[in-house]
């Protein structure tokens, strides 16, 4: 493999039902920086059925080129059909870097493609950079349960690939005046050769927690002690109309369902206000909430790393502080005769 044959930064533009996933825009933003640093074009690649029109949007968010494979067999995401398209594109155009959103489909696709291309893939990346001289992607992610970051390199194989956590990178403001090149490719796909069929897609909004869209989140950690004390988290959340989240430990202990886990292996959230109560602030948790606008931490341990990311911190016993907070909010409510809410 001649590494110098590989040039360019590519981003998988994930679309569902003709709508591009937010993480793809974020990756175009992150990819733009890498491409500029490496002095190469940034390309998006788009697969689906009747999705050509999405190319313009891809360019508006920062791509110089968009590779499009439009085919009826690609209507729904399937590993076997999508990977065929991606492998064809990668072998034909030889990008040096390919980024995918760490969504169920993005991770699935990247894992299959990496195996067939015999190349390296870094999972759930939260920091991206490039070593220009060595032309290496530096993909960093929390490791070992999340108290430390590891930078993963792929020195001798191309393309260098990574899946990237949603909501960690920043999308550029779209510019519909930007011009770019759209390259259409055709591959042979036959429905009768497919071994899997998507029979039905159910958008189950009730099951998805509202954490991702919440304006205010009250998150409890194992510092709450036990399930009974953890009820204080629910009570505070209810009083101020917030959503409840928990750390990995809390979910492992069964105090909350997995859907409410915030962090590397749970949800990434960006609310306007984030209460971290009895949360120590392990890296794997912090990557899932550090982009919140206002972070309030309550913890007994003055050295807890959560205070490093908190806007305001209270060192003290949550069992003492939270009831007082609840009482204050409740009295405020009676006093003014209204509901606490957020803009």
């Amino acid at each position: 493999m001649n590494l110098d044959d590989y040039r360019g930064v590519w981003v998988f533009i994930e679309q569902n039902d003709g709508k591009i996933e937010g993480v793809s825009f974020e990756l175009l933003g992150a990819g733009r920086k890498l491409a500029d640093k490496l002095d190469v074009p940034l390309a998006g690649f788009l697969l689906g059925d009747g999705i050509k029109s999405l190319a313009n949007q891809t360019i508006a968010y920062g791509a110089d080129q968009v590779y499009v494979i439009d085919h009826p067999v690609l209507k729904h995401y399937r590993t076997e059909s999508y990977m065929k398209g991606v492998i064809y594109l990668a072998q034909t155009y030889k990008p040096e870097i390919i980024l995918y959103g760490a969504t169920p489909n993005g991770k699935d696709l990247a894992s299959a493609v990496a195996t067939d291309l015999s190349t390296g893939l870094t999972a759930d990346t939260t920091m991206l950079d490039a070593d220009v001289e060595k032309r290496l992607l530096e993909a960093s992610r929390p490791a070992f349960g999340g108290n430390i970051m590891a930078t993963i390199l792929c020195k001798k194989h191309r393309p260098q690939m990574a899946t990237v956590r949603p909501k960690v990178m920043k999308a550029l403001a779209p510019d519909y005046e930007r011009s770019g090149q759209v390259i259409e490719e055709k591959i042979s796909l036959k429905e009768e050769e497919m071994r899997t069929k998507v029979l039905q897609i159910v958008n189950d909004v009730t099951k998805k927690t509202n954490l991702a869209d919440a304006h205010v989140i009250v998150c409890g950690g194992k510092g709450m002690g036990d399930l009974q004390n953890f009820q204080l988290i629910h009570e505070l959340a209810e009083t101020i109309g917030a959503s409840v989240g928990g750390t990995r430990d809390v979910v492992e202990a069964g105090w909350l369902p997995h859907e409410q886990q915030i962090g590397q292996t749970g949800e990434t959230v960006t609310p306007k206000i984030y209460f971290a109560i009895g949360v120590s602030g392990a890296i794997q948790h912090v990557v899932g909430m550090k982009n919140s606008e206002l972070i309030i931490a309550i913890n007994k341990d003055p050295n807890a790393p959560i205070f490093d990311v908190a806007t305001y911190g209270i060192v003290g016993d949550a069992m003492e502080i939270v009831p007082q907070l609840i009482a204050q909010f409740k009295s405020l409510r009676t006093e003014k005769g209204g509901e606490v809410s957020y803009a």
Binding site: A143, I152, K155, P302, G313, I314, I321
Partner: peptide, 24 residues
Amino acid sequence: SPTIVGKMFTPPRPEGGKKLEGSV
């Protein structure tokens, strides 16, 4: 294995915010 761990690091500690003071 095409991937290797380049380095391990604890992310730069952000400055941190303001700790409130006084009684509870």
